[in-house]
Design a protein around this nucleic acid. Structure first.
Lengths: 344, 344
DNA sequence: CTGTTAGCGCCTTCAT
DNA sequence: ATGAAGGCGCTAACAG
């Protein structure tokens, strides 16, 4: 038996083709009895609408795409949660999620995306402060939202970590434990020079928080990976021997910090306190000791970005939805890496 | 200026619409000069084919879907690499990759997938030995391939880790270092009872390898997470005090193993050797010491599964491609967790 | 509340 | 090697 079409359902339910369409889409009232007959026919035939035909006729595919950055840089746990959170949210709203590695770096690429009409909108992640994709997508007329946000986020939909608050929380925790000299280990120099949002905003946040609490403060950019972490932390100790605590936004480097500490015969948290920021607890729980962590609500952020996009897609053109800039705080996951500052 | 259609390109190039179609799809020879004119028109107009219309007419969407399992179970690094590898491979072949959380547990769901005609095929991951999805997809007539493989993989496309070889390699490494009493820490009991492929196959592989090398052998199923790892390893030590090495397939539990060892004042690799199997080195490099690891070629597996699917999709119906069951070995990533067996 | 019908943009058979 | 024209299955006017 061939794949049933809408007309088959209509015949079986003794109604016009259009009535089936309206019953299914709900875009026009249909008498309860009629609708029931239709639904029964749908079930009996195992009918499922052809989404290509539907999309062609309605000019809406009910697909959104999540644009990944070049994965060579390596994708982490947090990014993965963005993806699953986004997928879940999309499906909950009746949309499908297309993954794409398209870096959208040229207008032509965006035009191709727009021209294909395959997707109704896009979500971009790993946003840089001057992300070229923002203007390109706008120019191409592709609705989009962001996980992260550019320098100027006004008038755009985005969902991002509240880095100011995260930094504040991190410093406050350390401060309340008596730490007066702290350090912040950031992402790599290249992420800063390319103005990667988290790198820049966390740096600002930590500077502000350090000033607010009046603690001595050092910061370092740090390549990903244990080796860089080890070197940077050694260097930090040399420059600031009074250091007693460090906030690390770079989980791969955190391993190196621990090694550096072990190396000098010191311990965590007796001699040094470590707090992981914007890392997944699934990762930091594996350290010895497990790291107290300010974990980003990654799945929520992914879901939120999708929801903002879809809501704006569904708003009537004559009454567009006001774009939202949402900032979500990291949540504290307790480990065993925080202790009172040692006395000199 | 409205979105250009194929007819616009045809007019501008002074050819019939059909010629443009053939020039673009290559499904019929087109004179070089004609084709050049067409391509120029395409560029000038910024034309991109409407994939919905194309799919409707051709009955092929050029989209494949990757079916994720319920992400509550938590998705790891390796899974993420499946996803990026699959995406990359799909795009390289001119396909798009749709992510779906659809668990395909009922025929109705599969029918809906098939009926929507949105995707030409599916890739399933986290395959269980008696995975219901296999028969359901087959019954629904949806072409698919697998990352992993069911009990009977004959006649099906799948790409999986070669667990026998991985276990053999792991045991051999330990054996050559003089270890005569080893243990294997597997995934959780629930994964075994649900016949999750890797759990079952690794268990078989390690038993065989232990027998082959004639070493004393213990095995444990182990919940994910450091706490379970700690408890299981303690228990293992109690039962087999002569133990000198352990292979761990569960990276979250590995942290607990290290803790258990630290706890008794022992060290790695002086007292105990640890080898991680089927884990991402990105994770195991973070341990102290970094774990020597047999890392699965996750991106390759994801890419391979997609390629097998698409190739079977593109084969002419009268000459179908023979299904392939590919087994890829894990590659060794050196850490510092392996040493010669201590002498009693 | 229901029915009729003209497209949506492209592919593809059939003719030339 | 190129053209002409009939769908693909559904949506959304427009009519009643």
């Amino acid at each position: 038996m061939a794949k049933p079409r809408m007309v088959d359902v209509a015949n079986r339910a003794n109604v016009a083709l259009a009535t089936v369409s309206y019953a299914l889409s709900g875009r026009r009232p249909v008498a309860a009895a009629t609708r029931r007959r239709i639904m029964r026919a749908v079930e009996e035939l195992g009918y499922a609408p052809n989404s290509l035909a539907r999309g062609l006729a309605s000019k809406r595919s009910n697909i959104v795409t999540l644009l990944l950055r070049n994965p060579e840089r390596g994708i982490g746990f947090t990014e993965m949660e963005f993806v699953t959170g986004a997928t879940q949210a999309a499906e909950a709203l009746g949309y499908q999620l297309l993954l794409s590695l398209n870096d959208m770096s040229s207008l032509r690429q965006a035009e191709a995306l727009a021209g294909s009409r395959l997707v109704d909108g896009a979500v971009i992640m790993e946003v840089h402060l001057d992300d070229e994709r923002v203007s390109i997508l706008e120019e191409a007329g592709i609705p989009f939202s962001m996980i992260g946000r550019p320098r100027d986020s006004a008038g755009r939909n985005c969902a991002d970590i509240d880095f100011d608050r995260t930094a504040h929380d991190a410093v406050q925790h350390l401060y309340e434990l008596g730490h007066q000299s702290i350090a912040f280990l950031n992402h790599s120099p290249s992420t800063l020079s390319s103005a990667y949002g988290p790198t820049v905003r966390a740096e600002q946040g930590f500077r502000a928080a350090a000033a607010e609490f009046g603690v001595r403060y050092k910061e370092r950019l740090c390549g990903d990976g244990p080796d860089s972490g080890l070197l940077e932390f050694r260097d930090l100790l040399r420059e600031a021997p009074d250091l007693t605590a460090v906030a690390v936004m770079n989980d791969r480097a955190a391993a190196g910090v621990l090694r550096a500490i072990t190396e000098i015969g010191a311990g965590v948290p007796e001699d040094y306190s470590i707090i992981a920021v914007a890392s997944s607890a699934r990762v930091t729980e594996m350290f010895q000791p497990r790291l107290t962590t300010l974990e980003p609500p990654a799945a929520e952020l992914g879901g939120l970005a999708v929801r903002l996009l879809i809501e704006s897609l569904q708003a009537p053109p004559d009454d567009p939805r006001e774009p939202v800039q949402a900032l979500l705080p990291c949540r504290l996951v307790l480990g065993a890496s925080l202790g009172p500052a040692r006395v000199a």
